[in-house]
Design a protein around this nucleic acid. Structure first.
Lengths: 146, 146
DNA sequence: TATTTTCGTCTACAGTTGTAACCATAAATG
DNA sequence: CATTTATGGTTACAACTGTAGACGAAAATA
């Protein structure tokens, strides 16, 4: 597989990526200018982060005269999904539900997203188990944790 | 505030914590034994992780004869929430909805969790905006990204 | 008691991350 | 032309992580 592991972005790198994703490619000076409106990083810092993203093959460069244009090689949505999935993979199964509840209640959602979520829940409720088991201890351990 | 920053746990440390949370306190030998059923870490590695968690004050020790019992100083749910919240804080506002949709559809949920989620959505749908705006570029930039 | 096991502590070491200075060269400007 | 500016490249360095060996004291066992 050629899949790039988006979970390998550090938080600082992630912030840069958001700008590049949104602009769908940008030169270092653009990124620097925009980034410095959000954070107090120096030019140097931002250039280092760009370079690291290129090394990780999360960005690719296209020469444009004397400068480079940085292009994402990973989609924003895919990257976000990978991250969220990865995080949830490491949480206690039993408690994921509660976590999503907490998350959802804080989130600002559009009408259409809400509709879609309702549809999914509707569908899920047909086969939902009474309870989901904890998986924090190694398999085979009969633990009804928590 | 005395709040301990649970987002400061590394992934490896997090794995240990799950065991300790579930058992609600454990000695190093217990943790080592359990952990080694999931990962191939050596005793030494696990001891290092325990020590680091103590240094970060995420675990506290209580002497029990010659050994220590390690107790969590942070609740599992709080820690999980902090993590999830932190991750979502760094995502594009506009796309959070889609991400939750994706997440929810993969998740195994209990009947009661589903009910609760439905209630929340019901409530939210009363005041939900038609659309949520992207916030990837610095404030003040009129970007209709994406 | 001599030996082995159990625990805790100290040390190590390479890789990642946040943060940044400095240098060279090409381009723009005075 | 001399100087300033823009851009990319190189180097640095401390903190944090994953991973683990070695040392020492106490306890259990042969």
């Amino acid at each position: 597989m050629t899949a790039i592991d988006a979970t390998k972005m550090s938080p600082a790198e992630w912030e840069l990526m958001r700008i590049i994703w949104t602009k769908n490619g940008a030169s270092s000076s653009e990124v620097i200018k925009l980034m410095q409106q959000k954070r107090t990083w120096t030019e140097s810092t931002i250039k280092t982060l760009l370079r690291r993203l290129v090394n990780k093959k999360i960005l690719k460069t296209v020469k444009d005269g004397r400068k480079f244009i940085y292009h994402p090689t990973v989609g924003e949505k895919e990257a976000m999904n990978e991250n969220v999935t990865e995080l949830f993979d490491h949480l206690c199964n039993m408690k994921k539900g509660k976590i999503v509840i907490e998350l959802l209640s804080k989130l600002e959602l559009s009408r259409s997203d809400i509709k879609e979520l309702q549809k999914i829940l509707e569908r899920k409720s047909k086969t939902a188990p009474e309870m989901v088991k904890c998986d924090c201890l190694p398999a085979g351990m009969k633990n009804e944790c928590c």
